[in-house]
């Protein structure tokens, strides 16, 4: 059980690190996709199949595609490389900050009284999830729906070419 988790975790972390380090944008996105697949594998391991399903659908299916499109649409961006001293300074600061956060988090995890109860994953059927979403959490579901709608509309407005706006369309 733990061995499988270790393999999944190492693969996820490794590909995430490779994505963050890689020079090529496309390769980074590809490695991130691997990493997201690893997270989906973790969900499977933990017994949350439906979440794994959503993870694959949304991260591997949608977000990586959106990122790819963003890369393609911004292809002619000016040269990526910063002047070396500035980039190096930023990288060092970034690693220091991230290491600090990691240290704090790991310390907290190691020193918290976290008891494990229950050896089996809680049984959650898709039917049950559906009832919960439509019942107890219906309000939240509606809010998320509105949020997604507005976010998508906003994304369209942001990404649309401003030159083609008609003057009368302003609300």
């Amino acid at each position: 059980m733990s061995a499988a988790l270790a393999i999944v975790a190492l693969a996820t972390l490794g590909s995430a690190a490779a994505a963050m380090l890689g020079r090529s944008l496309l390769r980074s996105i590809f490695m991130l996709a691997v990493s997201w697949a690893g997270v989906a594998a973790f969900y499977m391991w933990a017994g949350a199949q439906f979440v794994a399903f959503a993870q694959v659908l949304i991260y591997l299916g949608a977000i990586s595609m959106v990122a790819l499109f963003a890369v393609l649409l911004t292809r002619q961006s000016r040269d990526e490389a910063s002047p070396p001293p500035a980039a190096l300074r930023r990288a060092i600061l970034a690693v220091v900050a991230a290491a600090g956060v990691a240290a704090v988090l790991l310390w907290a995890v190691a020193h918290s009284p976290l008891a494990v109860s229950g050896s089996l994953a809680p049984a959650t059927s898709v039917r049950q999830l559906g009832f919960d979403l439509m019942g107890r959490h219906a309000a939240a579901l509606l809010v998320v729906g509105v949020l997604l709608t507005i976010a998508l509309l906003g994304a369209v407005v942001l990404a649309a070419d401003g030159a083609q706006e008609r003057p009368g369309d302003e609300p």
Binding site: S2, A6, A9, T12, M20, L25, E80, A87, A94, V116
Partner: peptide
């Protein structure tokens, strides 16, 4: 096992943070 999972997520968080801080490309 729970702590292992949490450690995994902490490290993943740190990797993402480092990437977000270090890279200059907005994507």
């Amino acid at each position: 096992a729970l702590q292992l999972c949490l450690a995994f997520s902490s490290l993943l968080f740190a990797v993402g943070l480092a990437g977000a801080l270090a890279r200059s490309n907005a994507i």
